[in-house]
Write a protein that binds this DNA or RNA. Structure first.
Lengths: 331, 331
DNA sequence: ATGAAAGCGCTAACAG
DNA sequence: CTGTTAGCGCTTTCAT
């Protein structure tokens, strides 16, 4: 079967421990011996068994990743970023999709905890209590959520919302609707809160249409409430929902942006391809993925000496065709 | 730190092996003892170390998955299917994204091989030789590709193309363009071949515009060639590309489906949301994911006794608004 | 600079 | 039914 370290040792005429050293810390072993071992290893196609190594070193070289829903285009981008960075660092990654089921998340963490050095939880939906509880099982880094003193990488939700409101204000909008995402979502709460503050400061009115599934269908469902609210602009929790709104508005013969302006969040690949192209708050998704890995590494290596590891990445409003000057108010 | 099997043994006043047995094969141990062990385990929050278990049993309880590009909406659906089925079977899954780099794939397989019981390779781009070579490292199941006698789950590409051509023929189309995807892609070759056969049989003409990146941008780039070819219909390798074609046609003021009909493949979530909604060959993506795991399990358990494990899933043309009756030919 | 021995956490004979 | 023994593949003292 597969060659073990003993096979290599035998082939090179040394002991297993020498092989181990030769393949790892180069300095502690005679160059000639090292060469011999290296060749034997190559010849036999030797690949160390990481599980066995992990058993003794306590380091697995693996990393866990949990996302709520891979079908939401927001997450694949993050996963790609994480993948890429993990691969550079020679880490393998376990992926689990919770299917937006908050109750399932702790189980997923626990299932993986023993096999990884740490995990990245992307937009976890589970309760704070659960989060704190599972944080004892392994090293955690949160993405898109902030809880207690847990290491976290967030995106500047508030800044994004402020930019959106400033943009709409410049276009003369006064009444704006908010189409909310999952109630359990931290970023949903953050965005809503920021919106409240920003609209109040701008002397604008914010109509909350409630919480909807963070998908195309959710936006479709919300669109009629938006129309009924008599607003001239709407901001949706994410692009998928914004696209749903767009589609429903078109179906009802309501012109975008002439009658209603629409703003999304995420800048998923397809938002630029929509017709009209969607104005949206762009989030640095792949960068967030990469940096979350870096954050995890720093936590893993520096121990718990410094301040809580946190980082916030900037967001950027992309103005496209779905927003325009507000129509004149009715008499 | 974390409780080991010895801790549980001590707490329950039995030997580690009894704990092992009590927690696994229920029959071989005294019910009373078993109860005691179970309680001790619960109390200590014991979770077996799967890596250690795998070391001795040879089964890791892990499964590998490699996809070319998670940013292509086709793959997340498959990954979700695989995830779901794997979880049911209590398997954890390693995910790697090769970023459409055929040369990187063998390395990814080898990196994971030792830590998994088997792997699913989704639309692998690597050469047949590489594929055969890595198939020695671990149990493989191919999705969306067929090579040698390797276990494979495929989708009925030919059937899908036949349905598309029959549909276009019914709509009076005679000249049809093909917008190809990655040259290395097996399904790309399959679809093209099927198209050749089907058009020939129908007395239609097929114009091949070449190979493009399997993304929105690829479709945009191909669209002008489609127009220049003077066809009344176009079939794209995938929906992303079809959407790109759609967008470029609109930009050029060419009406769809009035002047040109457009057909995609995959039925990604957004194809139904496009305007006009995209006619496409739907592939059972999540089902393919689930069944690929089942296939892997059957190969793993049944050994290599029976015929090569293969399965082909049916495809289904979804007729939507992007296809219509061909415009009358020019005099 | 290298080898021998011990052991990571677990399961699988083998006794009893 | 249960404990003892051995060992999966690897790294790491501790000697030499």
């Amino acid at each position: 079967m597969a060659a073990t370290i003993r096979d290599v040792a035998r082939a090179a005429g040394v002991s297993p421990s020498t092989v181990s050293r030769a393949l790892a810390s180069s300095e502690l072993v005679n160059p000639a011996t090292r060469e011999r071992v290296q060749q034997a290893a190559d010849r036999l196609g030797y690949r160390p068994n990481r599980a066995a190594r992990g058993l003794i070193t306590g380091r697995t070289g693996n990393l866990g990743l949990i996302v709520p829903d891979l079908a939401n285009p927001f997450f694949p981008s993050i996963v790609k970023g994480i993948q890429a960075r993990a691969r550079q660092l020679d880490y393998a990654v376990f992926l689990a999709d919770s299917d937006e089921d908050a109750a399932a998340e702790p189980g997923l963490v626990r299932a993986l905890a023993k096999q990884v050095d740490g995990m990245v939880l992307c937009s976890p939906r589970m309760t704070e209590a659960d989060l704190l509880a599972v944080s004892a099982e392994t090293t955690l880094v949160l993405v898109n959520r902030r809880v207690g003193a847990l290491p976290a990488l967030t995106l500047d939700n508030a800044g994004g919302m402020r930019q959106a409101i400033a943009h709409l204000q410049a276009l003369q909008h006064v009444r704006v609707a908010w189409v909310g995402g999952p109630r359990d979502s931290w970023s949903n709460r953050e965005r809503r809160r920021a919106l409240r503050t920003a609209t109040a400061a701008a002397g604008m009115e914010l109509i909350d249409t409630g919480n909807f599934a963070p998908q195309y269908e959710g936006g479709v469902a919300a669109a009629d409430l938006v129309v009924a609210a008599g607003v001239t602009a709407v901001i949706a929790y994410n692009d998928l929902m914004a696209l749903g709104v767009l589609s429903r508005l078109r179906a009802r013969g309501i012109a975008v942006p002439d009658q209603i302006s629409v703003v999304g969040t995420d800048d998923i690949p397809l938002s630029g391809m929509a017709n009209p192209a969607l104005t949206t708050v762009a989030l640095p998704k792949e960068a967030a993925g990469r940096q979350s890995v870096d954050l995890l590494m720093s936590v893993l290596h520096e121990g718990d000496d410094t301040a809580p590891a946190r980082r916030e990445l900037p967001t950027q409003l992309l103005v496209r065709d779905s927003t325009g000057v507000a129509p004149p108010a009715h008499p």
